[in-house]
Amino acid sequence: MITVDTPSPPYQDLTPDRILNAVESLGLRCDGRLLALNSYENRVYQVGIEESAPVIAKFYRPLRWTDEAILEEHRFTLELAEREIPVVAPLVDATGRSLHEFEGFRFTISPRQPGRAPELDDPDTLEWMGRFIGRIHAVGAIEPFAHRPTISIETFGEEPYRYIITNGFIPPDLEAAYISTVEDALQRVRAAFARAEPVALIRLHGDCHPGNVLWSDTGPHFVDFDDCRMGPAMQDIWMLLSGDRAEMTRQLSDFMEGYKEFHDFNQRELLLMEALRTLRLIHYSGWLAQRWSDPAFPASFPWFNTQRYWQDQILALREQAALMDEPPLFLG
């Protein structure tokens, strides 16, 4: 097994032949069909299999996670699947392995799950989503992760902010404004977390936006647990809410109709909603900055690191600071 400290080949060495050979090293027979899927952190492909349904092969970004952290993600999704919660878990081979290695690349194979984006303006859909996320959180609260990080002000706010500043991403004429805006926003985030205490930290999906939910006639399927980690339950909820305050209040009420059937919700976590949204803004900019040397990122995100981008970030963070001063959503 590769460890996080072992140099790994860059993605440009992940040729179509190597991808197919990796899949066939597990005893599968590829039919030559290969489709790159929308993924930036890792490399993900739909691979055709002879006389069988296609599979999804995910090749992990070198050096990002330890083997132990990846296997902990796999165990979590397999635990959820065993409890008949609709998540897409990795396939396990005859020896019980879910993480594989081929010519220096770590990868996993999972079944292909078709679906469409959920209609989050539909109350029944939100209630359905709430039931399954409630079940995920009920399992997530049983025990903590040992090898995966925690969503915190430090990891999602202060660390990416320091990286952006120390590596010179901010245009000189915007640097003072960006620094003062982020410092002010983080101060309000700290205050929000302090007001919300005590908050339980549980195992989460971690990146539960609508793009990571595939809807079919049988309901939702949750995919891409690559960012699963410890954190407050609200982290898996707020990204499903949108619109003005009245709209988000209605959406939250519909969602909680299902969620509370399976897991208790600490209403103090509503104080964290805009704080978590603020941390995601900062973290997203830091993520793009940290990956900017990957040729796929400038090609896919040409608007990043432009004057306009940083101006918009300053504006967005100022708006978030104002929102954090408002009362939290009310849940009857």
Rank of each mutant, 00 (worst) to 15 (best):
M1S: 14
M1K: 13
I2R: 10
D5F: 14
D5P: 04
T6G: 12
S8E: 08
P9H: 07
P10W: 10
P16H: 13
L34V: 08
A36M: 08
S39G: 14
E41V: 03
N42S: 10
Q46L: 13
E51M: 11
E51I: 00
R61T: 05
P62N: 08
I70S: 00
E73T: 02
R75F: 06
F76H: 07
A89S: 03
G96H: 07
R97C: 11
S98L: 10
L99D: 01
L99T: 02
H100Y: 13
E103L: 06
G104Y: 06
F105W: 09
F107P: 08
F107A: 03
S110V: 12
P111S: 12
P123K: 03
L126E: 09
W128P: 00
R131W: 10
R131T: 09
I133D: 09
H137W: 06
V139D: 04
I142K: 12
E143A: 15
P149K: 01
I151Q: 11
T155K: 13
T155W: 15
Y163I: 05
I164N: 00
T166R: 13
T166V: 13
F169M: 05
P172H: 11
P172W: 11
D173P: 11
I179D: 05
I179A: 00
I179Q: 06
S180C: 03
L186N: 10
R188W: 10
V189C: 09
R190L: 13
A192Q: 00
R195V: 15
E197P: 07
H205K: 03
D207P: 03
C208W: 04
N212A: 02
V213A: 02
T218R: 07
G219S: 00
F222V: 05
V223A: 13
F225S: 02
R229S: 12
Q235R: 13
I237N: 04
W238V: 05
L240E: 01
T249F: 01
S253T: 13
D254N: 05
Y259E: 03
Y259N: 06
Y259I: 06
K260A: 10
E261T: 03
D264G: 15
F265Y: 13
R268P: 06
R268D: 04
E269K: 05
L276M: 10
L276Q: 09
R277L: 13
H283Y: 09
H283R: 11
W287S: 01
W287R: 08
A289N: 03
A289G: 00
S293P: 07
P298V: 09
W303G: 15
W303Y: 14
W303M: 07
F304V: 12
N305I: 08
Q307P: 07
W310H: 05
Q311Y: 09
Q311A: 10
Q313I: 07
Q313D: 11
A321N: 03
A322H: 15
M324E: 03
E326T: 12
P328A: 02
